[in-house]
Design a protein around this nucleic acid. Structure first.
Lengths: 339, 339
DNA sequence: CTGTTAGCGCGTTCAT
DNA sequence: ATGAACGCGCTAACAG
């Protein structure tokens, strides 16, 4: 078993040319004959040559690698985002280093240092729950490494770009969808108002009603933790207390499913009598309740978009750019009832 | 904004010592005074120094990075495996490069070349569906890069290690579990016999029956594609055709859930009259049917185990080792019915 | 079109 | 304990 790997010098020696010519040939430079190019490539294959990117990267001062920091890889939203990122990166010939903060600030800090040491060409970040101050993330721009947030962002001095989901618009569109289907009295299942996402979704719901001249009724907003059982209970309660409810916009999918189960139990037919839309970015709801209409934005699309933006920023590193914020439009998916 | 990053030479100059001393200090060598060590570290922090790992790695001919090849990152099993891998790697100070083959052989081949060029210190692979011959994976060992398969493996000449789930044992234990609960007549929902996993699960089921002196009844094995609807139909059919069925071992979770739904519909109480175990390594079934007993091995554990084995092989690269196969024992999870 | 030279930033000899 | 010098493998700059 041979120890050292073959270098350009060996293939240069074998061909009795200079190593720089070999280098050029391997890089498909146009300053080299087709003939020698062919000879070099042949010899390289024959010797099982693999370019040493450690050396190449050092010389070019560029790692051809982007770093990705997420709280948890195994969460479906993040794993699909990473899938999108990897596809974009692969297409551009970049590598992807994956790091998970596990929702911890200290770990996130050490990841930042490590990525800088690895001289990544850019970074995609979805911050941990402990991250409020983005001080440690400033190191990236201090080292001239472009950074793009996706989904979970935080404020950092300097230029930073982000790709987000428009919760308010999503809620707006979901509600409009229900109105267009003929709903007059639409219930909203909302979540804890401490969270930005639920506040925004409530806002979008209100906006939609207003835009269509429907007056907002506080009674029709039920706040819960949005578990399946909550949806079940909420729809039961609202139907007892109110006449003529014909639509539900749920701030997540599980509560929507609970409501559907309740309605099925009492013999209502979905979605003819009561139309339901659930906010979702997991595929789970589709499996549990194939007839549920959902509104969401896939992690995959966000990942791809963020990665694209990052590459743009890498390419234009030198030109001074301002904050870029891409807000992705949600997608409403109405599935056929399989029942 | 300064362009070039600070190097050991700059901090050496600032301290009026030699760069090699700085290098030693930063590497915590014992051949350097505590005092100078302190001064160097201080200065390094002050100048915002980050070691250039491109250079360091080149010099040491070692990238401190492992490569991971999976068919699809967004599949839950793989994303949790990657999560486990990342945690182990982080603990050892290694980076993880993620690559997805998207079930394609050509893409897998080009990933292999790329990882070799990046001089990864080791590789974890779960092969694509198109990969039957592992010829391209031989490149790894030719380049002295340890390789460990997890979950999906294939034959490669030379030494290669793998970490797998013991499907047969899992099925055996699931069936034994049912017998211990008092079941006398256990149905098996099986899948396409072209797939190794379903063959092995059937084998384990048979073994368990045999070991407990229960005779195998071909009538009690129903083969389908194991969708929810299949489970629903299968249990209906079996209950019509057979008296006294009191247990079901399903080769996956969706069919088990279908069966539970059917039984709920006809008013049976689970799990008192008919006990059901579904094979599963997705968390989805838990959400859909919280009372379902499952047997599986998590991707997370497999990832951690495989990564550990890889590090072992990296550490002992020079000593000649033989094939290592780790077969993980499945875990049976019996949940309380929430209904 | 090709060869020569130099150096990316670091770690590791040798000296002292 | 520190300094001087070299080289990891490759590419860029300059000749010719």
């Amino acid at each position: 078993m041979k120890k050292r790997k073959t270098t350009i010098h060996e293939i240069a020696k074998a061909l009795e040319i200079d190593s720089s010519t070999v280098s050029r040939a391997l890089n498909n430079s146009n300053r080299v004959t087709q003939k020698t190019k062919g000879k070099v490539l042949l010899k390289a294959k024959k010797l099982g040559y693999h370019r040493n990117l450690l050396a190449s990267n050092l010389r070019k001062n560029k790692s051809n690698t982007i770093g990705v920091i997420v709280p948890r890889i195994s969460r479906h939203f993040f794993s699909s985002a990473i899938a999108g990122i990897e596809e974009m990166a692969f297409a551009k010939g970049y590598n992807v280093i994956i790091c998970q903060s596990l929702e911890g600030l200290e770990r996130e800090k050490s990841i930042v240092d490590n990525l800088i040491s690895n001289r990544v060409d850019g970074v995609l970040v979805s911050v941990s729950m402990e991250t409020e101050d983005g001080g440690h993330l400033k190191h990236f721009e201090q080292n001239n490494i472009p950074l793009v947030f996706f989904d979970r962002h935080c404020e950092v001095l300097g230029n930073n770009s982000k790709v987000l989901i428009d919760d308010e618009l999503a809620a707006y569109e979901a509600t409009i969808h229900l109105i267009n289907k003929g709903c007059k009295k639409i219930v909203h299942f909302s979540g804890p108002q401490t969270l930005e996402i639920y506040k925004n979704r409530l806002k979008g719901y209100k906006e939609a009603l207003k835009s269509q001249g429907i007056s907002f009724d506080r009674e029709l907003v039920i706040t819960s933790r949005l578990m399946e059982q909550d949806g079940y209970n909420s729809i039961e309660k609202i139907l007892n207390d109110n006449e003529g409810v014909d639509g539900v916009f749920s701030a997540n999918d599980m509560a929507a499913i609970g409501a559907i189960k309740y309605l099925k139990g009492i013999g209502k037919i979905i979605p003819d009598e009561i139309a339901i839309v659930g906010f979702s970015n997991e595929p789970m709801s589709e499996v549990i309740e194939p007839s549920l209409t959902t509104i969401d934005q896939s992690g995959y699309e966000i990942g791809k978009t963020a990665c694209n933006l990052l590459f743009y920023n890498i390419a234009n590193k030198d030109v001074k750019t301002k904050h870029q914020t891409v807000i992705l439009k949600p997608i409403l998916i109405e599935r056929e009832s399989s029942l």
